[in-house]
């Protein structure tokens, strides 16, 4: 049988383990420029599922699609190193301040432009927002069915897809038709490591906005090896309604932000008494560490 056309939706996320005071802008949106950026963990689980399908169905093509600033091309390279075939970076000021709905709209417009796709696969949620909304909202906007909380894409052949999904108290195996949107859980297998051969091949892969200061030799290298050019699309490359984009297209607004960044401090010494344990639990609940 012929291979599948798979698009992996991935997001470069600020590493929420290292959050400083300047992490939020005055308008309540995230100041990504000051934070270390990583490949969203569950999107790596999603990439692994795509790579397994590629192993199983030769001829399968995996495209990594990400929306973000120029430096988000880093995760496309990371995907190429692990076996993805190509990538598209969707990058434009017009998308700034998007909530999940405006993000899903921009991604769905891009996916429409990419032609026939069999499976759109994404991580369940991103660690910066933990909303788990973009996958299902992309599916709705493309009028495609969805399978969320996937742990194993068992098969995808003859127009059918079978997926094992993790639900609260057990597992469920579901069958649907292609095309399908699938979101993958952290409980799915971890992504394979980089492949040295692919690292050699793609280490100079760059998106247009990363090539602005490139010298002539580097431009020549990219002209000679077209696979080193990471596709970069702006709002002008897709068909959109301006009022659906960015802050304007976002129904949810951030009204207020309370910072709960933990300060380095002296250790508190507690007695194993009811009073101290009560105090401890109150503190942990109040600063949202637990509960």
């Amino acid at each position: 049988m012929k291979g599948l056309k798979i698009v992996v939706l991935a997001k470069q996320v600020p590493d929420t383990r290292n959050v400083g005071k300047d992490a939020m802008k005055a308008d309540g949106t995230v100041n990504r420029a000051v934070l270390p950026a990583i490949f969203n963990p569950e999107d790596l689980n999603a990439l692994e599922q795509a790579l397994r399908l590629k192993d199983k169905y030769p001829g399968t093509e995996i495209t990594l699609l990400t929306m973000g600033p120029g430096r988000a091309a880093e995760i496309i390279r990371e995907g190429l190193y692990r076996g993805a075939d190509n990538g598209i970076l969707l990058s434009d000021r017009a998308f700034a301040g998007s909530d999940t709905l405006a993000t899903s709209y921009a991604l769905s417009c891009t996916l429409k432009k990419m032609g026939k796709i069999d499976i759109i696969i994404a991580g369940r949620q991103a660690i910066d927002g933990d909303t788990a909304q973009v996958g299902p909202q992309v599916a709705e906007k493309l009028a495609l069915p969805q399978i969320t909380y996937a742990e194993d894409v068992i098969s995808a052949e003859n127009g059918k897809i079978v997926v094992k999904r993790r639900i609260e108290r057990g597992v469920e195996t579901v069958e649907g038709t292609l095309p399908m949107v699938v979101t993958v859980n952290a409980s799915a297998p971890e992504c394979r490591p980089r492949n040295a051969k692919f690292v050699m091949k793609y280490k100079h892969a760059r998106a247009v906005s990363e090539m602005q200061n490139a010298d002539e030799d580097y431009i020549l290298l990219h002209n000679n090896r077209p696979y080193l050019n990471i596709g970069e699309w702006s709002v002008n490359d897709i068909e959109t309604q301006a009022e659906e984009l960015g802050l304007t297209g976002s129904p949810t607004k951030v009204k207020a932000i309370e910072n709960v960044v933990f300060q380095a401090k002296e250790a508190k010494v507690l007695e194993p008494s009811d009073a101290d344990m009560d105090e401890l639990m109150k503190e942990l609940i109040a600063n949202h560490t637990i509960g």
């Binding site: 909304q133 976002s250 949202h288």
Partner: peptide
Amino acid sequence: ATSIGRDLGPRVSSALHSGLTADCT
């Protein structure tokens, strides 16, 4: 905010173009 509510909620909010906030405390 369960595997059902987090599957259904976003789909409904997208269809109705309404905002959805996940995991409110």
